[in-house]
Simulated assay, not measured.
Amino acid sequence: MSDCQLYLISPLDVGGSFPRRLENALGAGPVAAFQFRVKDVDPHAAAELAAPLHDICREADVAFIVNDSISLAKRLKADGVHLGQKDGDVRFAREELGREAQIGVTCHASRHMGMDAGDAGADYVAFGSFFPSTTKSSEHRPELELLEWWQQMMEIPCVAIGGITPENCSPLISAGADFLAVSNAVWGGDEAKAVQAFTKLLA
């Protein structure tokens, strides 16, 4: 039994039929968390888009994480926030969101960034992009040994991100990723079938 879990990241377009697609995905297999990630949308519009998705996640007992915005996470009473290196301070996020909030930090391919995030009180760190990604471009390409080292040395969980598919994820699971963060591999096709394919590998 793998301890690795699935962490879904939204596509940039979460309007239209997307709430139904999210329900399909969450109903197809166990998902630990869903990250709401939109860009260039004003806070009021983002909150309106997020509300039905938050409800779906709550119903499915899936953590609802907001990308980048501490203020939006607070407004939505989200389960947590995911911060890039330029999106704010973990300690400030903790003050704003409370002790129970899940706070994650993008750490690219850097052990140092990961340790700094852990020292600041992050609940998890994300390393990537392990593979070329159509969702977000990144020049950072961590090696599998980063995941292995992290598991041996650090207590807090690590997330592997970037171009992850059912076909290429097995080495990441073996290396010790606690979560696989996936977006296009699920939303780029049949979301239920994709979640089922990941579930078989994580079982």
Rank of each mutant, 00 (worst) to 15 (best):
M1A: 11
M1S: 09
D3L: 15
Q5F: 02
I9C: 06
S10D: 08
D13R: 14
D13S: 15
D13T: 13
V14T: 07
G16P: 04
S17W: 00
S17F: 00
P19Y: 04
R20P: 00
R20T: 03
R21T: 13
E23H: 03
A25H: 09
A32T: 01
A32M: 03
F36L: 08
R37H: 13
V38H: 04
V41W: 01
V41A: 05
H44V: 15
H44T: 15
H44I: 15
A45G: 06
A47S: 13
I56L: 10
C57Q: 12
R58V: 11
A60Q: 10
D61Y: 10
V62L: 09
F64R: 06
S69K: 06
L72G: 05
L72N: 05
K74Y: 05
K74R: 10
K74H: 08
L76E: 09
L76S: 09
D79H: 15
G80M: 13
G80E: 11
H82T: 11
L83N: 12
L83R: 12
G84H: 11
Q85T: 14
Q85M: 13
D87I: 11
D87A: 11
R94C: 13
E95Q: 13
E96W: 06
L97G: 08
A101K: 05
I103R: 10
V105R: 09
T106C: 13
C107T: 08
H108Q: 07
A109H: 14
S110I: 06
R111M: 15
R111G: 12
H112A: 13
H112F: 10
M113A: 15
G114F: 04
M115A: 11
D116A: 11
D119F: 00
G121N: 04
A122D: 01
F127L: 07
F127A: 04
F130T: 00
F131I: 03
P132C: 04
S133A: 13
T134D: 13
T135N: 10
S138V: 00
S138F: 01
H140F: 07
P142F: 02
E145S: 15
E145D: 14
L147H: 01
L147F: 01
E148G: 04
W149M: 06
W150E: 08
Q151R: 11
M153W: 13
M153E: 14
M154Q: 14
E155W: 05
V159T: 04
I164K: 03
N168Y: 02
C169A: 00
C169E: 01
S170Q: 07
P171A: 02
P171R: 01
L172S: 01
S174P: 00
G176M: 03
A177Y: 01
D178N: 09
V182Y: 04
S183I: 09
S183T: 10
S183W: 06
V186G: 01
W187M: 05
E191P: 10
E191S: 10
T199H: 02
K200H: 00
L201H: 00
A203R: 00
